[in-house]
Design a protein around this nucleic acid. Structure first.
Lengths: 190, 190
DNA sequence: TTTTTTATTGACTCGTCAATCAATAAAAAC
DNA sequence: GTTTTTATTGATTGACGAGTCAATAAAAAA
């Protein structure tokens, strides 16, 4: 059976399975066996390709981050005004692919994981810095305090995320809500 | 050594130790032994009083919720106008006792735990409902859409919490920030 | 065709940890 | 002073799960 070039296929399958498994369990208390089984292989193979469980989680996180980056860039490339760029960033955070319950659950767990894993924390910082600098860049022409506004918007995004993860009441259109709260804090000129 | 009436003392010590241990580890992957050791007793005794590990976690959560309720009520009792009540609620969320890193870390972990433990979820709902109804009550006289505003404020609180837990950039005065974002959405008459 | 490389797994090892239990001790009740 | 109740722990059990390894198989390279 050994066909060549299985590695990327196996890795992808494991990453997908890990996200699904984390989503189903609602925690990182998921066995390598369960992930491997869902991905259609033995746990030994998972260890062969990833070394250990943490590496699987990190790969899953990178996968999710990459998906988010795609959402951001595709929207950002269509935006011409600062306002549109802001809209693009907020809406990207609530795109289907990012707002998928499985993905939200993974995020929440990685938030926690970051507290005990320097690698996870590093990855999280990458996301945070990217979002922050994108927000500030979009806000600079239309806000007197772009940094503060950016941090507040980021907090609103995170908050809506966590509430979505918990099934708490949130508006049906989170992006619009965030923009509505942001609007009064923006200048009126383009 | 057996002095009578040790149970409440032991329970309290275990709850405190559990919160400290969770804060130090940054996760719920904490052994009963570690908690018991910190609390100055054997793990067998912890099991004797609490039955199992989950009960210790739940008790810790109840302890934190109770602390929050104290912060809320003490501030609410001094507030006379709707605006003051809103301020009281937001400021209570960022009171020293609630904003303690250990406590924030515990909250974050319980958020996750709630996904796999109906008991934890039930407790979380209690907090969410209380905060929501308090917010709506404060907002009703000064907002046209108290429910929506309440949900947005709750999201901001949660978001700032999570960011504080992660050491992400947040304003030095979170409560003031939230009120600043809320203000434009309020009517002007008290 | 032989050898090397890649893919793959079942079985096993080794720790860890929640939960139990029997045993001890001291207060309180009788 | 005997008995019961409460407090307490060391030692043990039992399960589970991460990571290893030797063995197998098939493609590719020689």
């Amino acid at each position: 059976m050994p066909k060549l070039g299985m590695e990327p296929i196996r890795r992808e399958a494991l990453v997908t399975a890990a996200i699904a498994e984390i989503g189903a369990a609602g925690s990182l208390d998921v066995t390598v066996s369960a992930i491997s089984k869902r991905a259609g292989m033995s746990s030994a193979l998972a260890h062969h390709y990833f070394g250990n469980k943490d590496q699987i989680f990190l790969a899953a996180m990178r996968h999710i981050l990459a998906g988010f980056a795609v959402e951001v860039h595709s929207r950002l490339s269509l935006a011409n005004t600062p306002r549109d760029r802001l809209k693009a960033l907020v809406e990207a955070s609530f795109a289907r692919s990012c707002f998928d319950p499985e993905v939200i659950s993974a995020w929440l767990n990685f938030y926690v994981k970051a507290h005990s894993s320097p690698d996870a924390m590093r990855l999280l910082r990458v996301y945070q810095r990217r979002l922050r600098s994108n927000l500030i860049h979009a806000l600079r022409p239309i806000s007197r305090k772009p940094e503060e506004l950016a941090d507040a918007i980021a907090a609103l995004i995170d908050g809506l995320y966590i509430r979505a993860a918990l099934g708490a009441p949130i508006s049906r259109d989170p992006a619009a809500t965030i923009l509505a709260f942001t609007a009064p804090h923006l200048e009126d000129d383009q």
